[in-house]
Nucleic acid binder design. Structure first.
Lengths: 92, 92
DNA sequence: TAGACATTTAGAAAATTATCTAACTATCTA
DNA sequence: TAGATAGTTAGATAATTTTCTAAATGTCTA
């Protein structure tokens, strides 16, 4: 929802690894969980934070819930980072 | 030092506000602290995390310690964000 | 060199976050 | 509709992070 949620979501290495997985292909919650030693509820919790941050989208397909990247927020993030490169105060 | 330190450092709103201040001009620790209601030691702690993440540089000038942005790491961050926009899996 | 100023370090308390197990909800299929 | 599978929710505990006050360090100047 907010930029703060985005940064909070990105601050955990497990969640960044999840995003790396989704970069390759959309995956179900279970497929994602299989890539970690962590319990399914913990992964579910991480997915929820990513979802609240709008970094991922979820869609139910029968029993499975498929997760995918939401590139929109990455573009907002890009804008934020760009503020610190190039623009701003005069350079010598 | 690591990407993880970078994201951890960026996950706190106070630290992001500090970066916003430094975007405008280099500032001493005290000047920075004056922009917050928080105690000086707390600000000092935040500055230390930003420094460990190499998002800022510090340099002593007499009694003052001047902080400035280190744009290098922002460029690394940009590369990370770019992975999630454009490249990657095929799109429909 | 004593005192003032700027900043950090130390150590503790409070708040937040990550993780687990157990239980629940939703969907499919025989 | 019973049982199996996929996933989430609830509630507790452990770990991490934020913040504070008190004390220490470093530097300047009278």
């Amino acid at each position: 929802m907010s930029l703060n949620d985005t940064f909070k979501a990105l601050s955990d290495p497990t969640r960044r690894r999840i995003l790396d997985l989704l970069k390759e292909r959309d995956m179900s919650a279970g497929d994602i969980a299989d890539h970690f030693q962590m319990s399914k509820p913990s992964i579910s919790h991480h997915l929820n934070l990513l979802k609240q941050a709008e970094l991922v989208l979820d869609e139910r397909h029968g029993q499975h819930i498929m997760y995918s990247l939401n590139t929109t927020v990455f573009q907002e993030l890009m804008k934020w980072v760009l503020q610190f490169n190039g623009e701003g105060k005069d350079r010598q």
